[in-house]
Simulated assay, not measured.
Amino acid sequence: MNQVDYLRISLIDRCNFRCQYCMPDSAEIDYILRQDLLTHQELLTLLREVFIPVGFTRFRLTGGEPLLHPGAVELVRAIANQPETKDLSMTTNGFLLSQKAQALYDAGLRRINISLDSLEPETFDKIVGSRGRSRWLQVWEGIQTAYRVGFDPLKLNVVVMPGVNDGEVLDLAALSIDRHWHVRFIEFMPIGNNELFGDRGWIPSAELRQQIRARWGLTESQVCGNGPADVFQIPGAKGTLGFISQMSECFCDRCNRMRLSADGWIRPCLLNESGQIDLKTALREGVSTLELRDRLSELLALKPEINFKERNSGATGAYTRTMSQIGG
């Protein structure tokens, strides 16, 4: 089991997109009330006095859409300035990135993942639930701005859905050839939109690699990320191709992460709701950060069993939260 040192932090559960794989069209989302969100100070207290002391040194800011959080830039600066922080990144849908990329970079953010599930504006808008004005161009401009500002690596996340965007795999992979961009293909999961998953299913990463290999060839890359992606490269390409195969391959033994929700719940496994702890309520009730540290240490010790022994119990689609509420 890898050392668990990577924390995904959901800053906010709200999003300005409604992606098909994240939440169904029919879903009524009960967004977290403002007073129930972790405050800026509570989040930093948990990081400094609970997570960092037990060994967390790598952090990713997520949402919902993290750039909707009014204090996103300030939080980036505060976390980047922690002497123990070895890595800080963000996952965003890119819609607000053209406005905020420079400020994020100046605050200390260097790595960013941007969701780009299609190069076809019509398909893209269908996936993200855009009604009316297309959102594709503004996201593309955000990607270009982040590239110019200097984000490196710049990663593009693609959730591959049969019959929706699987016909674009080669076009999306080609983005890695001439630019130092890293494309990550992610298998569709039964979290967030179980109905669509049941209708569409998922495509194994091995099939996507075979498509790419038949077109250009494909070699294993020497570049290793902080997560579970298997990384490859088109010969001569500047960027890489990663494959996150959570459906076709169990990579629990390589999992090095936990997830902190916007309302302060720590979750040890994406595919399993067992073992969650409400850190925010405990903090507000006066439980000492030393006691919270002990509780987190106990959960860390249980994480391998939650991942392995009970993982199938979390793959039924009966989740109490959507992917947007978990933070991906």
Rank of each mutant, 00 (worst) to 15 (best):
residue 4 V to H: 03
residue 4 V to R: 03
residue 5 D to F: 08
residue 6 Y to F: 13
residue 7 L to A: 06
residue 8 R to K: 10
residue 8 R to S: 03
residue 11 L to N: 10
residue 20 Q to G: 05
residue 22 C to S: 04
residue 25 D to K: 11
residue 26 S to A: 12
residue 27 A to M: 08
residue 28 E to V: 14
residue 28 E to L: 10
residue 28 E to G: 01
residue 46 L to R: 03
residue 47 L to N: 06
residue 51 F to S: 06
residue 53 P to D: 01
residue 55 G to T: 11
residue 58 R to P: 02
residue 58 R to L: 07
residue 65 E to R: 09
residue 68 L to V: 14
residue 73 V to Q: 06
residue 74 E to L: 03
residue 79 I to M: 10
residue 83 P to H: 00
residue 86 K to D: 13
residue 92 T to L: 11
residue 96 L to H: 15
residue 98 S to A: 15
residue 99 Q to V: 00
residue 103 A to E: 11
residue 114 I to D: 00
residue 116 L to Q: 03
residue 119 L to M: 06
residue 122 E to H: 11
residue 126 K to T: 12
residue 130 S to H: 09
residue 136 W to C: 11
residue 140 W to D: 08
residue 143 I to N: 04
residue 149 V to L: 00
residue 153 P to I: 06
residue 154 L to S: 02
residue 157 N to G: 01
residue 157 N to D: 06
residue 161 M to N: 02
residue 166 D to K: 08
residue 167 G to H: 15
residue 170 L to D: 04
residue 175 L to Q: 05
residue 177 I to A: 02
residue 178 D to Q: 14
residue 184 R to A: 07
residue 186 I to C: 00
residue 191 I to W: 02
residue 192 G to R: 06
residue 196 L to V: 01
residue 202 W to N: 03
residue 207 E to H: 13
residue 209 R to K: 15
residue 220 E to M: 09
residue 221 S to I: 03
residue 221 S to E: 06
residue 225 G to R: 10
residue 225 G to S: 07
residue 230 D to F: 05
residue 231 V to E: 04
residue 232 F to Y: 15
residue 232 F to E: 04
residue 234 I to H: 06
residue 235 P to H: 13
residue 237 A to V: 05
residue 239 G to P: 00
residue 242 G to R: 06
residue 248 S to L: 11
residue 251 F to S: 09
residue 251 F to E: 01
residue 253 D to T: 15
residue 254 R to T: 13
residue 264 G to T: 02
residue 265 W to S: 00
residue 265 W to Q: 12
residue 266 I to D: 02
residue 267 R to A: 05
residue 269 C to Q: 02
residue 271 L to I: 10
residue 279 L to F: 09
residue 282 A to G: 12
residue 282 A to T: 00
residue 285 E to N: 15
residue 287 V to N: 05
residue 288 S to W: 13
residue 291 E to K: 14
residue 292 L to M: 13
residue 293 R to K: 15
residue 293 R to F: 08
residue 295 R to S: 13
residue 296 L to H: 08
residue 299 L to K: 10
residue 299 L to I: 08
residue 299 L to E: 04
residue 301 A to F: 10
residue 309 K to I: 12
residue 311 R to V: 11
residue 312 N to A: 14
residue 316 T to P: 00
residue 318 A to Y: 07
residue 320 T to V: 13
residue 326 I to D: 05
